[in-house]
Computed example of a mutant assay.
Amino acid sequence: MNIKSIVEFVRDVYKTDEFIPLHAPVFDGNEKKYVLDTLDSTFVSSVGKYVDDFERKMESYTGTSRAVATVNGTAALSAALYLAGVKRGDLVITQALTFVATCNALYHLGAEPVFTDVSPVSLGLCPVALENWLLENAALTDKGCVHRKTHQNIRAVVPMHTFGHPVELDELIDVCKKWHLVLVEDAAESLGSFYKGRHTGTLGEYGALSFNGNKIITTGGGGMVFCRSPEAGIRAKHITTTAKVPHPYEFYHDEPGFNYRMPNLNAALGCGQMEQLDVFLKRKRSLAQRYERFFEGSEFEFVKEPSYAKSNYWLNAVICENNDSRDAILAEMNASNVMVRPIWKLMHRLPMFESAMRDDLTNSEKIEARLINLPSSPVA
Rank of each mutant, 00 (worst) to 15 (best):
N2C: 01
F9H: 02
V13K: 14
H23K: 13
H23D: 06
N30A: 14
K32D: 14
K32V: 14
K33E: 10
S41I: 05
S45A: 08
S46R: 07
V51C: 10
D52Y: 07
G63W: 07
A67G: 11
N72P: 02
G73Y: 08
A75N: 12
S78C: 14
A79V: 07
Y82Q: 12
A84D: 07
V86Q: 11
D90W: 01
I93G: 00
L97D: 00
V100R: 07
V100N: 07
L109R: 02
L109A: 05
L109Q: 03
L109V: 01
G110N: 03
E112P: 00
P113G: 01
T116R: 01
D117Y: 04
L130R: 04
E131V: 00
E136R: 13
A138F: 03
T141F: 08
K143H: 07
G144C: 06
G144V: 05
K149I: 14
K149C: 09
H151W: 04
R155I: 01
A156D: 04
A156M: 10
V157Y: 01
V158G: 01
V158N: 01
H161I: 04
H165V: 04
V167Q: 03
V167S: 10
D170Q: 05
D170T: 08
H180M: 08
V182K: 12
E185N: 04
A187E: 03
S190A: 15
T200I: 10
L203I: 09
F211N: 13
G213L: 15
V225Q: 06
F226V: 08
S229D: 12
E231W: 09
K237L: 06
T240F: 04
T241L: 14
T242V: 13
A243D: 14
E250G: 08
G270Y: 09
C271E: 10
E275P: 14
E275Q: 15
V279D: 15
F280M: 13
L281I: 11
L287H: 10
A288Y: 12
F294Q: 00
F295C: 05
E296R: 10
E299Y: 10
F300L: 09
F300Q: 02
F300M: 06
E301G: 04
E305I: 05
P306L: 07
A309G: 11
L315F: 13
N316M: 12
A317I: 03
E321G: 13
E321K: 15
N322T: 06
N323A: 15
N323T: 11
A328V: 06
I329N: 02
L330S: 06
A331K: 14
M333H: 11
N334P: 08
A335W: 09
N337H: 15
M339K: 15
W344M: 04
W344K: 02
M347G: 04
R358T: 01
L361K: 00
N363I: 02
K366C: 03
L371F: 07
A380T: 13
